[in-house]
């Protein structure tokens, strides 16, 4: 019971995080917390096999799948916090709370029979008991789940498959396109410059410096730009900010070095690396 009372608040709070987290990654992490806690509760409830499966399948596989997809598609989407459907939040809250109240006060309290416990069922071990059930009473359902899994795999393949309508460009095509772009718009035909070259930090959010010391924005990955984790400012802006900071009489040790170029400040939601 101790485990329950420790885990339950954590789980509820983490589940709340699912509702309130701004970023999808945070929501995914909250969900992972709930699942791990659930796994522990399974263990406490005499279900060691489900404990393992919960950790391996849910936390290990399914959550990873979520994170992969987030990485694929979630980066450039913004989840606006403005509700567009009128009254949706209020109604959802009202209905949801009523639902919870009814369930926990009505249904959960109505269970009154004594707890039998799994001592007898798990006499030969939980795994043995489960297996004997799965392969006798539930063998048909088990076989059906096998078919379901295969269909799911096929379905995922079909859905994720992108039909190619034209032949893929060959190396020669790509090279010709690069040269044509260069001829028409002056686009650099070679590799994009690597971030961090000649800069003080060798980090992805630090643009490379040209030989004359000016930063090269193209060296920053586009994803960072679209996430607004990177901004390019000109020297005047930087100097103005530096002046403000100095005027604020910041501790000299903490004061960032500002006089030197590049006049670049990587920007992000966090404060880290605000100015180097």
């Amino acid at each position: 019971m101790t485990a329950f009372w420790i885990l339950a608040p954590v789980m509820v709070l983490a589940a709340m995080g699912l509702i309130f987290a701004r970023k999808a990654v945070h929501a995914a992490l909250c969900l992972a917390v709930v699942m791990i806690c659930l796994a522990m509760l399974y263990a406490a409830q005499g279900a060691p096999f489900l404990f393992a499966v919960q950790i391996i399948v849910y936390t290990g596989a399914i959550m990873m799948l979520f994170l992969f997809v987030l990485m694929l598609v979630g980066v450039e989407t913004s989840d606006s916090i403005v509700e567009t459907i009128k009254g949706q939040r209020v109604m959802a809250a009202v209905v949801g709370v009523l639902f919870a109240l009814l369930l926990s006060l009505g249904v959960a309290q109505s269970v009154s029979s004594a707890i039998v416990g799994l001592g007898e069922a798990n006499a030969n071990g939980n795994l043995h008991g489960l297996a004997s059930l799965l392969f006798t009473d539930y063998v048909l359902a088990f076989e059906f789940t096998a078919a379901l899994m295969i269909v799911a795999v096929l379905g995922a393949m079909v859905l994720a498959h992108r039909e190619r309508l034209v032949a893929p460009p060959t190396q020669a095509d790509l090279q010709a396109r690069r040269m044509r772009d260069f001829a028409e718009s002056g686009k650099h035909p070679g590799n994009a410059p690597t971030p961090g070259v000649f800069a003080r930090h060798n980090a992805v959010d630090t643009p490379a410096l040209l030989p004359d010391g000016t930063p090269l924005p193209e060296s920053i990955p586009g994803t960072l730009v679209s996430r607004h984790q990177f901004e390019l400012h000109d020297a005047d802006d930087v100097n103005r900010v530096v002046g403000e900071i100095e005027a604020a009489d910041v501790d000299p040790d903490e004061r960032p070095v500002t006089t030197e170029k590049p006049d670049v400040r990587p920007a992000s939601d966090t404060d880290e690396g605000e100015s180097k």
Binding site: Q88, A92, G96, F99, L102, G106, V107, S110
Partner: peptide, 27 residues
């Protein structure tokens, strides 16, 4: 019929709530 799947989901949940209420009332 807004086309918003969340509205539909709200209706489903509301329906479930009503069923639950009925069930409790009967029980």
């Amino acid at each position: 019929q807004t086309g918003f799947v969340r509205s539909y989901a709200l209706m489903v949940l509301g329906g479930a709530l009503v069923v639950l209420l009925g069930l409790l009332a009967v029980t």
